[in-house]
């Protein structure tokens, strides 16, 4: 048995769409090692969630559930316990999911408890379960094989297409609840960033501003362009560190990794750590007054000019293009 177990996440009773690329990656691994695709649902009351996922036909043969109040809200401590118990009960040989902040928190802990290797931020699946992942801020690709009875992975969401439903329904199977403990931690509050825009890592278009925007108020013109294109707003580390916009808008090695169809970088010089977060984008546009800015080396279209002059023009032209 070399089954691949994907740990799923839910919000408001629904499967998070961010899980879908991780399922695609898991399916590719299952295809190379000849195993079945299984899902794991950890929740206080996992049955309705699991039923919905099983019916969606996402490619899994079995949806395993484990029930415990300790699974909500999410803590790495309790989830790692649940994942370890599920691996023992299902004999999974590969365990993973999309590299969300929760799975990046819980999976390595579970891997340590099982003395298992973990490959982070996988971008491609090769033969014989060799997984590729970027290192050194995306300047190199490491192809890595893991040995052992169980191997863990997290998949970079921007590198795999979301799995589509409509396949055969899966069977739901209840696992016995293991000893699950939060180790005395408590989640006091979750302050969600309120936004009517799509999530940065899932948006089709991302418009980002950098240090050259100088202050938060100046992001208004970028927000206007963002909304016109139905995209998400991003920023460089220089802009978030300066407090112009909230930190969770940061795109880069230390922020979010994005790969939209269209990435527009405004007044961003293009430090290595920023490029690491966006150079997988299909079309990259850079507007910068400094023609020597490194961002132009990755841009498909570069416009040398001040954002104060160029952005209002671009905004009007895009409006006209959309209307036409």
């Amino acid at each position: 048995m070399s089954n691949v177990l994907v740990v799923l996440e839910f919000a408001d009773g629904k499967l998070k769409s961010s899980c879908l690329p991780g399922i695609t990656c898991a399916k590719q691994i299952a295809d190379t090692n000849g195993g079945e695709l299984h899902f794991l649902v950890l929740a206080a009351e996992p049955s309705p969630l699991a039923q919905a996922v099983a019916g969606a036909g996402l490619g899994a043969t079995t949806v395993h559930t484990m029930a415990s109040p300790a699974f909500e809200p999410f803590t790495a401590e309790a989830w790692a316990d649940g994942i370890v118990a599920a691996v023992h009960a299902t004999n999974a040989s590969v365990v993973g999911g999309t590299a969300s902040s929760s799975l990046r928190d819980a999976l390595p802990r579970a891997a340590a408890l099982l003395d298992a290797a973990l490959t982070s931020e996988v971008t491609a699946v090769g033969a014989e379960a060799v997984l590729t992942r970027p290192i050194s801020a995306g300047r190199a690709l490491l192809e890595q094989a893991s040995s052992g009875d169980v191997a863990f992975f997290t998949a970079r969401g921007s590198e795999f297409p979301p799995t589509e439903g409509g396949g055969a329904a899966a069977t739901v199977s209840e696992l016995e609840t293991a000893e699950v403990s939060t180790r005395g931690v408590s989640v006091v509050d979750i302050q969600k960033t309120k936004s009517t825009r799509p999530a940065l890592s899932e948006a089709d278009v991302v418009v980002s501003g950098g240090r050259g925007m100088r202050e938060g108020d100046n992001f208004k013109v970028l927000e206007e362009l963002t909304d016109l294109l139905g995209g998400a707003l991003g920023a460089s580390r220089a802009a978030t560190d300066a407090g112009m916009v909230p930190p969770d808008l940061q795109v880069g090695q230390t922020g979010k990794i994005v790969a939209p169809n269209l990435y527009i970088a405004v007044a961003i010089s293009g430090a290595i750590q920023h490029l690491a977060g966006m150079k997988g984008s299909k079309t990259i546009v850079a507007v910068n007054k400094d023609e020597e800015a490194p961002i132009f080396q990755v841009a498909d279209y570069g416009l040398v000019g001040k954002w104060e002059e160029e952005l209002p023009k671009i905004l009007e032209l895009v409006k006209a293009a959309k209307a036409g």
């Binding site: 290797a117 192809e143 890595q144 094989a145 893991s146 990755v298 570069g302």
Partner: peptide
């Protein structure tokens, strides 16, 4: 538990235009 098979440069982006 980890074996490196290869480390390679990422594919270069085709050069863009100003």
């Amino acid at each position: 538990s980890e074996t490196t098979r290869a480390i390679t440069p990422p594919p270069a982006r085709p050069s863009g235009q100003i």
